[in-house]
Write a protein that binds this DNA or RNA. Structure first.
Lengths: 221, 221
DNA sequence: CTGCATGATGTTGTATACAACATGATCAAG
DNA sequence: CTTGATCATGTTGTATACAACATCATGCAG
């Protein structure tokens, strides 16, 4: 997949880079970004950069305020309850709607994720955990060929990823315990997929989302 | 709800206007729009207009091609199968996720829709039908307080609305019959809502989407 | 007549200057 | 000292000129 040097290609590069920075808390919630500085960094003018920021604003990760700045949106758990409830339902759909039988390549990549989870249990690390979680989610999205469902699930995922990561880093949730839970989930997930039971895998994922949310709410107070 | 004369207000006006034109086939699929002409019409420069077009492109209603133009996307039923399947599932969710008990005002507005449906049965009209369908959908969205679900459902609805309307106008589907079916559905829907059974109403809507899609596919060949 | 090169034309993409706006510092009046 | 107005500063929003690109007509060579 060669990153073409077209307008679309440049857009995609900036989009993914900035989204990753927001989601990995390199730009923590409340950060005021400077359009000019970012444009300089990416070697473009404000115009194409603003296109990227506009998209991220539409997706709820940024908010531009005239005369003030471009702010990274805050993540309040009470406001994300609805998003979580919806994600829970959509996770199940991924196994039912236009299911894609997992091929050897997908299984192999999932084995790679299991290995990384094991390594993480041995040496926990918030950032590595976050990246692994993202990769696992993307693998889950390969289960359905329903492109609209993929796009929507992805969008909701990136909206909630930050608050989860914040809970982990701020020690409101115990990192070690969370890593162990995640490790078990990935194993169950792969086990279901290995026998071709997409629906079961989706249910495992659904349960994971639901429980993860419950643990967060419990420890938020 | 006063339409404020801020940047956000102007954006909203242009966005809704253009989206409506696309969805009512004032801009038929394949139409090549001129940014400059539209900017003149709305009394702004290309810059803020392009923001609107960018959003509509992200939602799959437009496609900008460098050096060619801004094209209204084509609607192919085979490509929208996935969208329809997803919409079917989401329609059911609207009655389950964060349900809002219908108040007198909502019931009254639904009665208004029923009256319009009756009038439409007496004198069928594609454009009035399309507008009524949109208004009915928006009323349905009032059933859930889950804002992400509303936004997503709305987006998918506007993606598929055109192909439905096209089927009606091109007489691939009989307008009179479709109006009668719609009239019955609205009545069933209101009946369920009147006794406070949101879930039943959602199921009625779900069945409507599913059957509407089936009729279209049958008559497409 | 055919085929291809070439340029005219119109489009979207980008850079840049400026307008509109919010915010905090500064300073004077009380 | 407090308080209010005023302005300097920095930000996003907008307008405009130009670059990059695709398309089609034109004309010339074969």
């Amino acid at each position: 997949m060669p990153e073409e040097d077209s307008a679309r290609g440049r857009f995609g590069k900036m989009y993914h880079e900035i989204r990753m920075r927001i989601c990995l808390l390199d730009y923590p919630p409340g950060t005021r970004l400077s359009e000019e500085a970012m444009a300089r960094e990416f070697g473009v003018s404000r115009t194409p950069l603003r296109r990227v920021l506009g998209r991220l604003e539409a997706e709820g990760l940024l908010q531009s305020v005239h005369g003030v700045g471009t702010l990274v949106t805050d993540v309040e758990i009470e406001e994300l309850i609805q998003v979580y409830r919806l994600r829970t339902e959509l996770a199940e759909l991924a196994g039912l709607l236009d299911p894609v039988p997992p091929d050897a390549k997908l299984i192999a990549s999932l084995d790679g994720l299991v290995a990384r989870a094991k390594a993480l249990v041995a040496r926990p690390d918030p950032r590595g955990f976050a990246q692994l979680n993202i990769d696992f989610f993307e693998a889950h999205m390969a289960l359905t060929a329903n492109e609209p469902l993929r796009e929507i699930s992805r969008r909701l995922y990136y909206q909630t990823h930050r608050i989860w990561l914040k809970s982990v880093t701020s020690r409101r949730i115990d990192l070690v315990e969370e890593v162990q839970v995640f490790d078990r989930e990935v194993e169950d997930y792969v086990r279901a997929l290995r026998i071709g039971d997409l629906e079961a895998a989706a249910h495992v994922h659904r349960a994971h989302i639901s429980m993860s949310f419950t643990r967060m709410r419990k420890n938020a107070a």
